[in-house]
């Protein structure tokens, strides 16, 4: 079952690289968070601990419902054109993603060479999600993509934590989820401010502070 979910997350991650428009990107993030929720639910059933259920529920609430709707609300208010402003066209991005996956698998083989395939697969997928999150932040022009990239990286790390160690201590998970939510809100506010001051949200044109 987990393998199915992991492949789902991998596909969604690659889909994220391909999409051109902002709402598609947010929708993609929402689906990826949903799959993440399912993976956590699966772990919860296997380990039968109440804490993980609460964590999963919290994850569902924060990452699937609250943050995406907030982002969509922002996009409607900013009314800026919805193109993502790509540095690398989708084809090149995909090739880069494959290269990142290969790198993640080499990295994981250094540590988890002998452990069972499920954990190894989860490790590779989570590291790939982190790297793709990083990729989106570096190679997309819009401010929103940087927020989404950040959230995707956090998703990857959350997947890593729950996959290889069965989840962090309960309170830590709660604190991290809350923190991610606050981070999304604040970066959203700043994006709104950029739009008000600069009338665009192309981050690559923000280069006054040099040297």
């Amino acid at each position: 079952m987990t393998l199915f979910l992991l492949t789902g997350i991998m596909i969604l991650t690659y889909a994220m690289l391909v999409c051109q428009r902002v709402p598609a990107l947010i929708q993609n993030f929402r689906l990826q968070s949903l799959f993440l929720f399912l993976v956590t639910l699966d772990f919860a059933f296997r380990q039968k601990e109440a804490g993980i259920f609460v964590v999963a529920g919290l994850l569902l609430l924060v990452k699937v419902v609250l943050i995406p709707s907030f982002l969509n609300h922002l996009v409607k208010k900013i009314r800026v054109d919805e193109r993502l402003g790509l540095f690398l066209n989708p084809l090149l991005s995909l090739i880069a993603a494959l290269f990142l996956t290969w790198g993640a698998s080499v990295f994981c083989s250094w540590f988890l060479g002998t452990s069972p395939t499920a954990v190894f697969a989860a490790f590779v997928v989570s590291i790939t999600v982190v790297l793709v999150g990083f990729f989106i932040m570096v190679f997309r022009m819009k401010a929103l993509t940087q927020i989404v990239g950040l959230l995707v990286m956090e998703n990857g790390i959350f997947l890593l934590a729950s996959a290889i160690t069965g989840g962090m201590p309960f309170f830590v998970e709660i604190a991290i989820a809350f923190d991610v939510f606050v981070c999304a809100i604040i970066t959203g506010i700043f994006m709104y401010r950029i739009n008000k001051v600069f009338t665009h949200i192309e981050v690559h044109r923000l280069t006054d502070l040099k040297g």
Partner: peptide
């Protein structure tokens, strides 16, 4: 060397990566 701080956030993130 001042040229390396050229202001674009993408380059800065690339430095970290």
């Amino acid at each position: 060397v001042k040229g390396f701080q050229m202001g674009s956030i993408h380059w800065y993130l690339a430095y970290i990566f």
